[in-house]
Design a protein around this nucleic acid. Structure first.
Lengths: 139, 139
DNA sequence: AGGGCTATGTATAATGA
DNA sequence: TTCATTATACATAGCCC
């Protein structure tokens, strides 16, 4: 490449190696940005040289999430997985609470059986009784 | 590049975009491998296209550890923190839904003001009306 | 180190099968 | 579609600051 062809093996001369590292790193990052724009893709490049220099990354976390989801590879350790499970659990709990709430408000009733309707009716009557008693107290 | 110059913006034609994605992805991965060998560096490229295709990575975790150590950026901790924040957010949401639900059931009313009681009373009456209408349909 | 400069090797856009 | 092919644009090795 350039003024002379090189073969792909470790560049022994330290300063040449560092110069090449720097140039090629920029090249790769540029290409990554390009494919991101051109192809509507996510691209993350993480390069760390022996010099300790390394490329920054903006949205790496999101990218890695996507990567995991698509590839099925697990990058995070058990702790993260537990947190994720906890999130899923709470979300589910939240959903069912929301549904119950909507039913009590008289929404989305078509999926309910007659017995369930009776249950909600009783709950509502109880609630109404309690609320009215409380109103009297405050009045 | 190639037969004609292109400007770096989203390729609208889908098949062209996919072809370009595939070619450039390979190009980037090749470059990454080269810099690894030439410069004694670690390089990891994670690319995911809208097609759901994504580049495999062998030692990504090790790489990311190195990256974190060298850059001082905390990927794992940041991820951890994000998940924890998400959990807190959902928990809070869940709590308020639960409280509303208890109020509708006529529980924990002592903290409510008169106006709030009126609001719940109306909601309950509406709910009851809807439930009873629905019961008639199913009967 | 880091930036500019070519000559040259590569990557790749367009094309065709 | 996914492959070859090929002309062209781009990246970069070796220099010089």
């Amino acid at each position: 490449m350039g003024r002379g062809k090189i073969e792909i093996k470790r560049i022994e001369n330290t300063s040449n190696r560092q110069v090449t590292y720097s140039k090629r790193k920029n090249g790769i990052i540029k290409k990554a940005k390009e494919i991101t724009v051109l192809c509507d893709a996510n691209a993350s490049v993480v390069i760390s040289g022996s010099s300790g220099n390394c490329s920054p990354k903006t949205n790496l976390i999101d990218m890695l999430d996507t990567y995991q989801r698509l590839s099925g590879n697990k990058l995070w350790d058990a702790k993260h997985e537990n947190l994720q499970n906890e999130i899923d659990r709470i979300r589910k709990e939240n959903d069912s609470t929301q549904i119950e709430l909507r039913h009590l408000k008289g929404e989305d009733l078509t999926s309910l059986k007659y017995e369930e309707l009776i249950g909600y009716e009783e709950a509502l009557e109880n609630g109404l009784t309690n609320i009215r008693e409380r109103k009297v107290c405050l009045f």
